[in-house]
Write a protein that binds this DNA or RNA. Structure first.
Lengths: 151, 151
DNA sequence: CAGAATTGTAACCGTTGACATTACATTATG
DNA sequence: CATAATGTAATGTCAACGGTTACAATTCTG
């Protein structure tokens, strides 16, 4: 009876940015390279890069290969990434049961009653996502790596 | 490339409460009756009622039949209902990619970096859900029904 | 107390989306 | 041109959802 979550595409996308920032000095950032760090198939990475590119967050070179970050890190928020990778249907976090009975006064009005409330919840979440940027992620990643005894 | 949302179990559960409040004076509230208003199969309703009962939000009479609301409406929040119907795996809104490469400094640390930030986002959403109660829903439902020309 | 109504659940189905994988056309570069 | 990469289509597996049938367990009523 357990259920669904926001796709791992989102966390994987953040992972990609962290990798690019960490390694772009020393490696060419190919889908192969990113796939190894994330432990997923390169095609998964390419599809994600495609979405991030379409959103203007990443640049990818065909042929020669290599991905890079298209904007200053502090100008990319979690919300930007979340929207880019298209985690929820139509941008709607909540799924409505489709066909309430229109002959029932409640069935006929439930949508109107709930929509505004569900929007409030979704907006609260999105507002928080706007407060967190990739600069925060990179700062903490560097810190973690530096204090990591395995290095 | 479109994706998933929080289960319609959540909105259907709210619908159930609205129905009970609206009709309990005039009808016995059976799973059959609720199924008709929501336009779903009675078994779907029974499963939901089971979850809401387990959470102490609803009382259901076996045999004789009939569901009723177990607590004052203003003491039941969206978060209570959301948790009751178990919409996300382990209560975690975000799904992590499972096996980042532990040989990679980023793969090894990404979880530590993101967990706290994802929790912030989830908490923002849950805080908002705590602010909305079934009393709000019922108030607006009554209002909608009264101003509904179809009545 | 027998019959009717209802709940609780198990079992199974079809559909959908996620993630995985293979394959290959396309593109850039030395 | 040969090489290395990206972009993408096609296909497969798996899990969860919502749907449905079936039926035992429970309660009430005549």
């Amino acid at each position: 009876m357990a259920n669904l979550q926001i796709s791992s595409r989102f966390t994987m996308a953040i992972h990609i940015f962290a990798c690019i920032d960490t390694f772009e000095k020393d490696h060419k950032i190919t889908s192969e390279f990113l796939a190894e760090s994330g432990n997923v198939n390169p095609v998964i990475i390419r599809r994600l890069l495609g979405q991030l590119k379409a959103a203007g967050l990443i640049e990818v070179k065909r042929g020669s290969g290599g991905a890079s970050i298209a904007k200053p890190l502090e100008n990319i928020t979690f919300l930007d990434v979340y929207r880019a990778v298209d985690c929820v249907e139509n941008g709607e976090l909540f799924h409505f049961h489709e066909n309430p009975n229109r002959k029932c006064p409640v069935g006929r009005n439930i949508h109107r009653v709930l929509d505004e409330k569900l929007r409030r919840v979704q907006e609260a979440m999105e507002r928080e996502m706007e407060q967190i940027t990739l600069a925060d992620v990179i700062r903490d990643t560097r810190e973690c790596i530096q204090s990591d005894p395995a290095n």
